Simulated assay, not measured.
Amino acid sequence: MIKGILLGFACFAAYAISDAFAKALHGTIPPYESVFFGGVLGLAALPFIMGPGDRWHQVFSAKRPHLWWIRAITGGVGNICSVTAFTLLPMAEVFSMIFLMPIFVTILSVVFLKEQVGWRRWTAVFVGFAGVLVVLRPGFRALGLGHLAATLCGLTAALSMVAMRMAGADEKRISLYGAGTIGPIVFGGLAMLPHFVVPDLHQVLLLAGYGLLAALAGVLLMYATLLAPANRVAPTQYSQMLWAIGFGYFLFGNSLDWPMLVGIVMILGAGLFTLVREEKVTRWWKRTKVL
């Protein structure tokens, strides 16, 4: 299990460095163009994702096609929102919005999966959103497109997660990964056609770092969840905040004030608590099903 958890940390380090490459473009390439090239390079992970008996055509198919389409659409929209947010905002501030994902999952699970949520998890939801208000401080600072994009990124990630839950363990990994890769290629490709910017060598290198590291992260995440339970791997995603603070300070000249740090701690605490509670609920549900 330790190897799986360590791979989880390596996975989310790769994701954070990938996001830093995207931010280093400083908006010189439109976000949808970055997402297109990132998706194309993400196909490099497919040979490592494929399991025994998998076929290439299964990248474009699934046992429940509507869930494949949800994954594809949320992948395309979410990636464009992510690059937009990282371009416009400090990395730590973006991650504080994205880490609302477990909170959104709780709400969406009530709506779509009819899960029963107790007062503790609802309290975590309110604490998480209170943390967002502390970070954003609406009325005391200007809010813009970057904040909206970061929040939408967390919401689309939650929708994708709920779709994966609904797909169940019978869905092939290559189909789930394929949907999350094809979506950005299609959405990014269509959006960039009217305004294509030919990247120079420096931009090509940054795009390569963004796409290939994201592909590596996807492979690492798959192997991490094979070696350790998903509930043990999931909390390692919060290590991205440490990378974000470090990159923001040393590479991009960003600093955090005390209210923002307090809000980030509230969001991280609420998210981690939600992950722990969801695991307890899952174990109870499985036990009652067996009994």
Rank of each mutant, 00 (worst) to 15 (best):
V110A: 05
G76Q: 05
V105N: 04
L113Q: 12
L100Q: 00
V110L: 14
V110I: 14
S96R: 11
G75W: 06
V132S: 07
F104A: 01
S109Y: 02
C81V: 00
V134I: 08
I107H: 05
F99M: 03
V127P: 15
S109F: 04
I103G: 15
T84I: 05
T87V: 12
G128Q: 07
G75Q: 03
F95E: 10
A130F: 10
P102M: 10
W119Y: 05
F112W: 14
F104Q: 02
L100C: 09
T106M: 09
E115I: 11
V117K: 10
M91W: 11
F86D: 07
V134Y: 07
V127A: 05
F126W: 15
F129Q: 05
A85N: 01
V125S: 13
I103Q: 11
A85S: 10
T87A: 10
G76D: 05
A85D: 01
T123F: 13
M91A: 03
A85F: 07
V117I: 15
I103A: 10
V125Q: 02
S109A: 04
M101I: 02
F99L: 00
S82H: 03
E93L: 12
V77A: 13
M91F: 11
T87F: 14
V127C: 13
A130M: 00
M101L: 09
K114C: 07
W122G: 06
G75N: 14
G128C: 08
K114M: 01
V105L: 07
R120Q: 06
M101T: 06
W122F: 09
V111I: 08
Q116M: 03
F112K: 02
L88P: 04
P102L: 01
L88T: 01
P90G: 06
F129I: 01
F112I: 10
V110T: 07
S96K: 12
V117S: 09
L133M: 13
F95R: 01
V127N: 13
F99E: 00
M101N: 03
A124P: 14
T123E: 03
F112S: 12
P102F: 04
F126E: 01
I107Q: 15
I80T: 14
P90V: 08
F86Q: 07
N79R: 13
G118T: 02
F112P: 14
L100T: 03
M97V: 09
G131L: 11
I98P: 06
F126I: 02
I107A: 10
F95L: 02
G128E: 00
G128M: 04
T84M: 04
E115C: 09
G128K: 14
I98T: 01
K114G: 12
Q116F: 08
M91L: 12
G76I: 04
M91C: 11
F86C: 04
V111W: 05
G75R: 13
L113V: 04
F95A: 05
N79S: 03
L88R: 07
V83R: 10
F129R: 12
F126A: 08
F86Y: 06
A85M: 01
L133V: 12
G75F: 09
C81R: 00
I107L: 15
A130Y: 12
M101S: 06
G131W: 08
L108H: 09
E115D: 11
L108M: 03
V127D: 12
I103Y: 11
P90H: 11
W119Q: 02
V105Y: 15
V94N: 14
A85W: 02
G76M: 05
C81L: 01
A124Q: 14
P90F: 06
V125P: 12
V134S: 03
F112E: 03
R121W: 07
